[in-house]
Write a protein that binds this DNA or RNA. Sequence first.
DNA 1: TACAGAGGTTCCGTTGTGCGGTACGACGGA
DNA 2: TCCGTCGTACCGCACAACGGAACCTCTGTA
Lengths: 256, 256
Amino acid sequence: MADGDGVRSVHRALDLLERFDDEHPSWTLAALTTASGLPKTTVLRLVTTLEQRGLVAAIGPGKYAIGPGFLRWSRLSSATMEIPPAVRAAMGRLAADTGETANLYIRVGRTRVCLAQAQGTLSIRHAIAVGSSMPLWSGAASKVLLTDPPVLSADPSVIEEIALEAPRPPGFAKRLRAAAVDADARGFAISHGERELGASGVAAPIRRPDGRVVAAIAIGGPTTRFSDDRLPAYINAVRRCAATINTTNWSGFSAS
Amino acid sequence: MADGDGVRSVHRALDLLERFDDEHPSWTLAALTTASGLPKTTVLRLVTTLEQRGLVAAIGPGKYAIGPGFLRWSRLSSATMEIPPAVRAAMGRLAADTGETANLYIRVGRTRVCLAQAQGTLSIRHAIAVGSSMPLWSGAASKVLLTDPPVLSADPSVIEEIALEAPRPPGFAKRLRAAAVDADARGFAISHGERELGASGVAAPIRRPDGRVVAAIAIGGPTTRFSDDRLPAYINAVRRCAATINTTNWSGFSAS
DNA sequence: TACAGAGGTTCCGTTGTGCGGTACGACGGA
DNA sequence: TCCGTCGTACCGCACAACGGAACCTCTGTA
């Protein structure tokens, strides 16, 4: 082991935990086994361990769901990464100016998590929940988050790993990297129907003074409203918002 | 290894994570090393692993805090263990009747976590946050939670482990077990100034049909109001509330 | 009732992973 | 400058975790 990789058992346990999401709120042992590719003995051992700690809970014969153990940290984590009022204000202005919902994303491992949201004024909205995690291989915010130097330049394997999780034809890693390079050059990214048919988005990076991308600010809405004649204004609004947040010297958070 | 104990590395990693709480929102590696008793190499390896997953975040030179990775689960966990409206209503009535704040606790490993709360009407209140975890070795709710058959009867080591964490003289395990046995016999428990000077509480168990204790309903407030002439009424109110919740056949949650 | 299949659980020998002692570099205070 | 503290890198050893195989318990089917 290269010793910088971390502890395998812990990684595996977290891999299992991460499979519990909105689409799959509960798993059977067999499903976890096939999905993870681990031997079922190993899955059982890890799940048992997690159950002892209350991180998963048995909700039926062989059925497991996320347990109550997370409550202990959920409050603490949201307290730790409180969003500065200035940032919230900037997001609110962005939502008001464009009418679309504004979201703040950060990268967490191979996914992105929505940290904060300012609802748009229009009735057809881009509805996602704060705290939900989404794939890093689709969406405007993803492209922007991938422009973080350590991801884009230093370690090529990261983008490849992310691309592997996408249900796309081989060679997708190249396209993903190209999209990130493009976003890096332009300073923003656009997506049309990548994550969901009919949904579009525009995103721009939030950077620390040292250049690292700590977050992405994005607006999202129906593709109809992200037409060529409106896009320039949207892009401008998002970039202005990003610039404002940058000047509030918010350190943000980076997960490795 | 007895094979039912779980995976050591995972347990250790979670032990480290659990040290991050309201009193200690951030830790240095050195502090974690001495507090956990693990070799510093091991602590570093585990913390690095957790950092890669975003569960802890470096917030300074060698300083770590709970990271953004938990956001992914915080919403899911609260959704999974939604409190039925009937239970909320019962708690609200309890708070209204007594004027004291009502809390619903469940056991998570060697601690208890507050799942839900109904604020009291009186101005001096028992203020704790929903989601916060508290020791299992003090408080009325703890005694009640320890009456869960698997804990009280089956495995004596659990209570001993819990007692070990208490800053009490040796022999405390016996007193703790005695308190649990007493609570089991009476069907409720009282505490005066155990967790905090001047704070009192009354708690009763919530049981599944099979007799397992899945939760504890408790009211808490200043000791002055938990005087001998008021206590019987308080006890009655709490027990009535527990009985109501029991009949809503709420399965509840049990962490091992 | 017997059979088949799937899923969960237990057992146990093997090995590679996680462990932790040791050493180094960087910083800061005396 | 010295010393103490803290974070980080290296590396050989041992045992913890692993995973194959067998077993058990259901449930549906012939």
